[in-house]
Design a protein around this nucleic acid. Structure first.
Lengths: 193, 193
DNA sequence: CGAAAATTTGACATGACTCAACTGGAGTGG
DNA sequence: CCACTCCAGTTGAGTCATGTCAAATTTTCG
């Protein structure tokens, strides 16, 4: 069941007693989204932080010219949300959309605050996952600036082979910051070697 | 004094009693670095997380071709560290160098753990600043992908006019992900309008 | 099977890079 | 106080990586 996956993930960061788990349960919601559904829509407040139990989602931004920019993906055991919007309860800059039928465990911002108060170790857990996310995000900035498109693609495909199989190529191009045509060209070029 | 600035900043996130402040003090070190000095060197472990009381530093990565890539700057009330290295006590990917004589308040990773244990509110404070850093980092990724070099420069100069005055232009170019020559060209182009 | 979505391919355009030469301070030392 | 050097910034020529537009092809899926 979804909650098991969640507590299992949680236990890799902090160890909770059964009592502590019971304290958290009332604040954790399970939900299933269908392919194509939006968990968050740009302009609305992001009400949930969602842990992906099963499925695949993308976070993307729609700019003034109507172009999509994929910020990141999330699959099993990753998180999906517009963190800025969720934490400040302000309008979201990003859309979060399911690319497959997706099962999540999620909680609201008020619930998060409650859980922090009831189970201090949960705040520690949350701090740690945010720390990891921040470090990963900075690393991505560094990579994007020091590598060209071909190298970025190669690293991506080595790092996330699962994603490459599950996600349409044009979204990967967007994630890498290049046009879908150019990614196609790069791939055929690489294949010919 | 430096510690006052630090506690003052801290109090914008959580309110501490005098006793709590006294508990933290033994773990907080004040230090002054001269212009050009390195707080962290790529390949070494980043021993400190440093809060900038006064001064200016840059974080940058040196790639295999010997090229510098500025990841970010920090001035008064910002933080400087290679977070990934600091938190995992692993070799740093980045250099952190002072661009001016710089006064910091800093602490080690073991001290941070101690402080979390002694003053739970300090862990909350730390979580909040990491949250902010993460949100800012993701926003930067989004901006970099949806804007061209000229727009990125304009936003930078509007957002951080202080930085533009204090930091050599070629470092700003690097931060923006463009060559120093091209930034120069953009600026003269903009001036002519 | 047919329609829509995704990918590929090619021609052409351009943003941004490299290299190299030049300009203009800001020290520094004779 | 001048000459010299060093570093940052500018400018220009030529080039390359990557983008755009449009059409053709392939895949997906109802």
């Amino acid at each position: 069941m979804g909650l098991d996956a969640f507590f299992n993930y949680l236990s890799t960061y902090v160890s909770l007693s059964q009592d502590e788990k019971e304290l958290l349960k009332p604040f954790l919601q399970q939900k299933i989204y269908l392919k194509g559904q939006y968990i968050v829509q740009q302009g609305n407040i992001c009400l949930y932080d969602s842990f992906v139990v099963k499925g695949c989602v993308r976070t993307f931004h729609l700019d003034k010219q109507g172009q999509e920019h994929v910020i990141r993906f999330a699959i099993e055991s990753w998180w999906a949300a517009d963190m800025g919007s969720f934490l400040k309860e302000a309008p979201a800059d990003y859309n979060v959309q399911c690319l497959e039928k997706t099962e999540v465990v999620q909680f609201t911002y008020p619930s998060l605050q409650e859980m922090f108060g009831l189970v201090p170790k949960f705040e520690r857990f949350f701090r740690k996952i945010i720390q990891n996310a921040f470090v990963a995000s900075e690393k991505r900035i560094a990579l994007n600036f020091s590598l060209d498109a071909k190298e970025r693609y190669l690293i991506f495909s080595q790092l996330y082979p699962q994603l490459e199989r599950r996600v349409p190529q044009y979204m990967i191009a967007s994630y890498l910051g290049i046009s879908k045509q150019y990614l196609s060209e790069l791939k055929s070029h690489l294949a010919r070697e």
